[in-house]
Design a protein around this nucleic acid. Structure first.
Length: 111
DNA sequence: ACTCTGACTATTT
DNA sequence: CAAATAGCCAGAG
């Protein structure tokens, strides 16, 4: 499934990828953007996540930046909800960064 | 139609 | 190695 220039479904396609992230794994904005065929539009992915607040089936906490840092934690209610959600899935987080991120990372292109 | 903003990333200072 | 810069492009006002 490659990039389909359907701007109307941009958010939808981002959601589609995010919901595929396995429990206990995480992915990055860049990886999602790349999968969508717009590797240079990672900002749009993060932005789509902002709009994903209304989508209860979108695990936005499993999406971090390329270094495994919880850059979007301030967009979650509370101060450390994002970290708590990740830790509840067995992902160790310290100082807003995922530990052993390399092994927790899940690439949508690996499907 | 134009300007501003942003949960990013890669490159350059 | 920290900080600034430049691409990127869809939405909101």
């Amino acid at each position: 499934m490659k990039y389909q220039p359907n701007t109307l479904n941009f958010f939808e396609r981002v959601y589609q990828v995010v919901v595929l992230v396995p429990y206990g794994r995480v992915t990055t904005y860049g990886a999602i953007a790349k999968y969508l065929g717009a590797s240079k539009s990672s900002r749009m992915v993060g932005w789509a996540m902002n709009a994903a607040h209304t989508r209860l089936d979108v695990p936005a906490h499993r999406v971090v930046n390329r270094l495994g840092i919880l850059t979007g934690k301030h967009h979650f209610p509370g101060t450390n909800l994002m970290q708590q959600l990740l830790e509840s899935e067995g992902i160790d987080v310290e100082n807003d960064q995922i530990l052993d991120f390399k092994t927790k990372f899940w690439d949508p292109e690996s499907l």
